[in-house]
Amino acid sequence: MDDKMMAEVCLPTTDLTGDLGFFSGVLGMRMLSIFPADDPAVAVFGGHGLRVRLERGQGAPGRLRILTDMPFADGADRLVSPGGTVVDVAGLTQIVQRPPTQHRFVVRRLADQAPWVIGRAGMQYRDLIPDRLGGSIIASHIRIPDGGPVPDTVHFHRVGFQLIFCYRGWVDVVYEDQGGLIRLSAGDCVIQPPEIRHRVLEASDGIEVIEIGVPAEHLTEIDHDLTLPTPDLRPDRRWQGQRFVHSRAQDAVWRASGWSGLVARDTGISDGTQGVAGVRVLRRGGGPTAPMRHDADIHFTFVMDGTCRLQAEGQDARDLSAGDAFVSPPGMAVCLAAPSDDLELLEVTLPGKVALTT
């Protein structure tokens, strides 16, 4: 920051005399200057990381936000100064609460050509759950057509759960207290515990990832002070009870999944999040498929390879192929009929431990 420059927010006031006491007393800011002395028309205050210039006269009322986790203004969440300035009071730690899940059966097919939109750092996003189940979850199919360095910065998310699954290609990422560069190749995944600092460095041509975030709307904040990688390796560190998990496809062990006709590779994410969420990769196993039910609050499935026919209770059958996704509500009977031998699915559940029944 250039110490030879500064910026002021200019606010009109219809009652400068009243605002002098309000800004110094109620808001706890310090008066820096006032003029002219015989009939003040301008006063400048500083405090809370802000410099405010009050100018006597008419105009649309200004608005400020005070962010604090300390008791303030007797708990009021909105104040109005004598001169008309509106002051909103909010928590310093901005956390978006996860709303209750609005359970629905949702199918999103790649062939339907839902639009790709440009998101953070130039990445392209496709929404896999358009209604986001009432705001409880967001599932994004993300791609970067041209490989190379990614224009990212060190940042973190105020989120309850976040998964990054590398679908195609590879991507290099660095994480706080997790050693040096981590390369995610196709089939690898990580969870990003709440507020862990990280940065995307470089990606291959045609990189595609699946990103899951809970809740759907959450804050992303830039950390301008931290440099990654950090010097310490702390694999057991926890952020809000969750530890960093890096699951590699090359280490896969396939076991019975509980789903008829499918086997599973467990990523260890249920243990890493202490049961907040579970992530598995499912493949075609032996034997026939049959209708199954689950008791998860959220059950999301993305088709990575192969084909199958989705038969859900009370719904028309749908043919699924790579790039398609669906969400089934708890208690609904679902069958993945006629699975191809190369069928491979990404399954995400909240909570992590789910009961399956026929």
Rank of each mutant, 00 (worst) to 15 (best):
residue 343 L to I: 05
residue 325 A to Y: 02
residue 209 V to H: 05
residue 184 L to W: 05
residue 290 A to T: 06
residue 69 D to Q: 07
residue 291 P to Q: 07
residue 161 F to A: 15
residue 339 P to D: 05
residue 255 R to N: 12
residue 84 G to S: 08
residue 208 E to Q: 10
residue 346 L to E: 08
residue 83 G to C: 06
residue 151 P to D: 07
residue 356 L to N: 04
residue 169 G to L: 05
residue 183 R to C: 04
residue 55 E to D: 08
residue 115 P to S: 10
residue 104 R to H: 11
residue 167 Y to H: 15
residue 251 D to T: 14
residue 150 V to W: 02
residue 225 D to S: 13
residue 254 W to V: 07
residue 265 R to T: 04
residue 322 A to P: 02
residue 175 Y to E: 09
residue 76 A to V: 04
residue 254 W to M: 09
residue 149 P to L: 12
residue 176 E to M: 10
residue 133 L to P: 01
residue 82 P to K: 09
residue 243 R to S: 10
residue 154 V to P: 06
residue 171 V to Y: 00
residue 213 G to T: 13
residue 221 E to L: 15
residue 235 P to V: 08
residue 33 S to E: 11
residue 2 D to H: 12
residue 300 F to Y: 13
residue 78 R to A: 14
residue 233 L to N: 09
residue 312 A to Q: 01
residue 10 C to I: 12
residue 141 H to K: 01
residue 338 A to Y: 09
residue 88 D to I: 02
residue 218 H to F: 13
residue 40 P to W: 02
residue 35 F to H: 14
residue 91 G to R: 13
residue 177 D to F: 14
residue 212 I to S: 02
residue 347 E to K: 07
residue 17 T to P: 00
residue 351 P to A: 10
residue 126 R to L: 11
residue 137 I to A: 10
residue 180 G to T: 04
residue 1 M to T: 15
residue 263 V to H: 12
residue 234 R to E: 12
residue 288 P to W: 02
residue 115 P to A: 13
residue 253 V to N: 09
residue 148 G to D: 05
residue 136 S to Q: 05
residue 293 R to W: 00
residue 2 D to V: 08
residue 56 R to L: 15
residue 78 R to N: 05
residue 13 T to K: 08
residue 280 R to S: 13
residue 205 D to W: 00
residue 16 L to C: 03
residue 129 I to A: 06
residue 110 L to Y: 06
residue 328 S to E: 07
residue 269 I to K: 02
residue 21 G to L: 07
residue 93 T to R: 15
residue 349 T to W: 01
